[in-house]
Design a protein around this nucleic acid. Structure first.
Length: 697
DNA sequence: GGGCCCGCAGGG
DNA sequence: CCCTGCGGGCCC
């Protein structure tokens, strides 16, 4: 975050925490504000004069009062002028991205208010931001990282705390209260605190985003012309990109050629032989929508297009006709999106069923060939190429090369324009179907019974719709359309809210009363309870009923014990003088306020949408949507991270929704219960190389 | 060139 | 909300 190196003071014994030496009285300097001794030699900025020495504010205290921009001592007008100048400086810094600029602006504004100043409630997030500032570790002055909480209610980074203990200290660095030996031996991460810090961070990032216009932009017209990396994408470029603008006006489930009337940009439609660099571009011209999947379609509606990319070795390309293989049947565990290996049978379901429906109805199917298809003479040398309209004449299942059943489709070309590889000047004429040998061993053969929707008109001498094309189930240009997104927006809002609420409820609830904690106590075993609940649970009782093991519902009476209701650790000593974890309390409270505020806002917004006429006040909405979408991404990734931390087995499959032990055919087939033995444990291991932390989480 | 990774977008 | 997917970048 900050490049600034933080200085370290002397500890309770007078030893410099930076150099580990014990400075003499002359070598140390006391802060005029907090009276903490500091080793002069280890200070990054030392006082210049004796006068300075007497009026010296330690780095911690001066950090709070003196901010480099704007000049703090200046009058109000010049202060705001300085602020404007500082913002201008940030704006004009070309080395910064929009997001970084937003971050800087946010930092600037937060700092400007200062901790002791009364903050105006101009922005509800201010409160949250200052709370986050209050969650700094007393040692390193940074936001708590892997926080551990002392029974006296103070929080430190695990690293700093361990360092402190390693120096032989056995008292709290904040209040000098004794640290229980058990905690000194094995400090446990306060996972509730981890969660609230994350949530507060999310809100903070959200606030920063609100000041800038950055991706992901929701509406189609706001998307860039090329695929773009979103902020949450770690990899730049097109590896994990989001789609660029859709240039055509056809709905996503449009059948048949892309006509000039659907091409407002060029007014020519998509012509046979047009090429694109990648799948995103192909998608942007409405030819083949999904950016990975080979088949575009819906099982109840039909398939609109396919791509031949050599992904399935059973494919067989003869140009004017080809045999296509359905999707699925492959093991995608271990976070894969594709896989050459077949490991179970394909069925006529989902997109395979969609393609079968297109076969039955005789719908026109757009075909794209990719340079990735190496075994076909008809594939382009590079890029992707639109090869025109085909019809699926038959489909069936057969045993594929790898021994598993695959869905098969006979595609025959039926386009009015000549194929890119032919010297013909005219398009296709109806032709007899090729003889397919494998049909002799095929099962589940489907042939079209009804007359095809797309057929050759002898009179007109061209291919055309003989029956009206299927009604689109999507609106025209629903991909990223404003209309579609508006409803989605409301939905998303509700989702975000419930995610936050759920998180707070799930992570910050008292084990005893099941409600979000008020005045939380953190036990030495790092569990959190309402003060009243925990004290009440043991008040005047000679024995206590409690769950013996988390996850089991058995209640067992245990005599004369004061054990943590969550983990059964002895907390008798802790209960003698339990201290509220104030920092935790404050964050929880501000998060609750935040959620309440959002509830109110979304209520207003929902009312507003009802009343609002089309297209009014869109500008504000763009920002709102960008903001929300961003938050959603953050929440998702945060939740994923939380999940990762919680389940050490979460791995990267989390994102894929593949969980250990969930049954699927592929897993049964390869007999290793779906666990890829080569799958690295990395994500969690790196994050928490500390065995202690890992144990806890 | 193969393996690995993972955000996106859509279907259901 | 979960699941799927004939991508694309990067590393070896």
């Amino acid at each position: 975050m900050a490049q600034q190196v933080y200085d370290l003071p002397c500890d309770g014994e007078g030893t410099c925490m930076a150099c580990k030496n014990k400075p003499t009285a002359e070598e140390s300097l006391a802060c005029k504000t907090c009276a903490t001794p500091w080793h002069v030699a280890c200070l990054s900025v030392r006082p210049n004069s004796l006068a300075d020495t007497l009026q010296w504010d330690c780095p911690d205290c001066s950090l709070l009062s003196a901010n480099p921009v704007p000049a703090s001592g200046a009058g109000e007008s010049s202060s705001s002028g300085g602020l404007i100048a500082a913002i201008c400086a940030i704006e004009s810094d070309s080395s910064l991205t929009e997001r970084e600029k937003a971050k800087r602006r946010q930092q600037l504004l937060c700092k400007d208010a200062g901790p002791s100043d009364h903050k105006e409630e101009t922005n509800g997030d201010d409160n949250l931001l200052s709370i986050l500032d209050g969650l700094n570790c007393s040692f390193c002055m940074q936001l708590l990282e892997r926080p551990v909480s002392t029974p006296c209610g103070h929080n430190f980074c695990l690293k700093c705390f361990t360092k402190w203990i390693g120096q032989g200290k056995r008292n709290c660095a904040n209040c000098r209260k004794e640290i229980p030996p058990k905690m000194a031996r094995l400090p446990l991460i306060n996972s509730t605190l981890v969660t609230v810090i994350r949530m507060a961070k999310m809100a903070k990032a959200n606030a920063a985003v609100g000041t800038s216009r950055d991706y992901p932009v929701i509406r189609n017209e706001d998307r860039p012309d090329k695929a773009f990396s979103t902020e949450r994408s770690v990899k730049r470029g097109n590896a994990n990109a989001a789609s660029g603008k859709i240039f055509v006006t056809t709905p996503m489930d449009h059948f048949g050629p892309i006509l000039p009337e659907n091409d407002p940009m060029r007014n020519q439609g998509v012509l046979v032989g047009e090429t694109w660099e990648n799948r995103f571009e192909c998608r942007q011209w409405g030819v083949h929508n999904p950016h990975i999947s080979g088949i575009a379609g819906q099982s109840k509606h039909g398939a609109q297009s396919v791509t031949l990319s050599g992904g399935y070795e059973d494919d067989e390309d003869h140009g004017e006709w080809f045999l296509y293989t359905g999707s699925g049947g492959r093991d995608l565990s271990g976070n894969k999106r594709t896989n050459k290996e077949h490991s179970f049978d394909q069925e006529f379901e989902n997109s395979n069923e969609a393609l079968r429906l297109s076969c039955r109805r005789g719908y026109p199917v757009r075909v794209v060939r990719s340079h990735k298809e190496k075994r076909s003479s008809y594939a382009p040398e590079k890029s992707l190429r639109y090869d025109g309209i085909y019809r699926v004449e038959k489909c069936w299942r057969k045993t594929g090369i790898k021994g598993f059943k695959v869905c098969r489709y006979l595609f025959v070309r039926c386009d009015n324009a000549p194929a890119p590889w032919t010297s013909d000047v005219h398009g296709d004429r109806p032709r007899p179907l090729p003889i397919i040998e494998e049909l002799n061993v095929a099962i589940d053969i489907t042939e079209r019974k009804e007359s095809p929707s797309w057929d050759y008109d002898e009179e007109k001498g061209c291919w055309m719709w003989k029956k009206p094309p299927p009604c689109s189930r999507k609106r025209a240009n629903n991909r990223h359309s404003e209309e579609g997104k508006r409803t989605k927006k409301v939905k998303r809002q509700a989702q975000n809210k419930s995610v936050k609420e759920k998180l707070l409820k799930a992570e910050c609830s008292c084990y005893i009363c099941k409600k979000v904690m008020t005045s939380p106590l953190t036990t030495p075993c790092a569990h959190n309870f309402c003060k009243s609940c925990l004290e009440g649970a043991f008040a005047g009782q000679s024995y206590v009923k409690q769950r013996t093991c988390e996850g089991r519902r058995t209640l067992r009476a245990q005599k004369n014990t004061m054990k943590c209701p969550s983990c059964s650790n002895d907390i008798a000593e802790f209960l003698q003088n339990p201290q509220v974890n104030r920092e935790l309390m404050e964050v929880i409270e501000s998060l609750q306020r935040e959620i309440a505020k959002e509830n109110e806002e979304s209520k207003e917004e929902a009312d507003g949408i009802h009343e609002k006429a089309e297209g009014v006040d869109v500008s504000n909405e763009i920002v709102e949507e960008a903001k929300e979408n961003n938050l959603k991404g953050q929440i998702e990734s945060e939740i994923q991270q939380t999940e990762k931390l919680k389940k050490t087995s979460g791995k990267c499959a989390q994102n894929r929704g593949r969980k250990k032990g969930s049954t699927s055919r592929k897993q049964l087939d390869d007999g290793n219960n779906g666990v890829d033995p080569s799958e690295p444990e990395k994500a969690v291991g790196e994050e928490l190389q500390d065995p202690v932390a890992e144990r806890k989480l």
